[in-house]
């Protein structure tokens, strides 16, 4: 069930900040997300965070 939602482990190169992978398949950074949304004809769903993010992928 949820297992098909699990994602491949993903890292961001700068500073090795990990991408949260607790369910939603996040597309980071913006440039990649924008490319993907154009290619797949999908809307961007953007969550701006105002109270801090961590290298571990936490926020």
């Amino acid at each position: 069930m949820l297992d098909h939602l699990l994602l491949a482990f993903a890292c961001l190169a700068p500073g090795e900040t990990k991408v949260d992978q607790t369910g939603i398949r996040w597309a980071l950074p913006f440039k990649e997300a924008q490319k993907r949304s154009l290619r797949e004809k999908r809307l961007l769903l953007i969550k701006p965070i105002a109270f801090g993010t961590e290298k571990s992928g936490g926020w």
């Binding site: 949820l2 939603i24 398949r25 913006f30 961007l44 701006p48 993010t53 290298k55």
Partner: peptide, 29 residues
């Protein structure tokens, strides 16, 4: 699960830190 499935199926989700100093800072976003 319903929310996760809907987002993964039909959207390109992105989060980022509004603060340029944050770990997930993203100037373009």
């Amino acid at each position: 699960e319903r929310v996760i499935r809907t987002i993964n199926r039909r959207f390109v989700p992105l989060y980022f830190d509004l603060s340029p100093a944050g770990a997930a800072a993203d100037g373009l976003a």
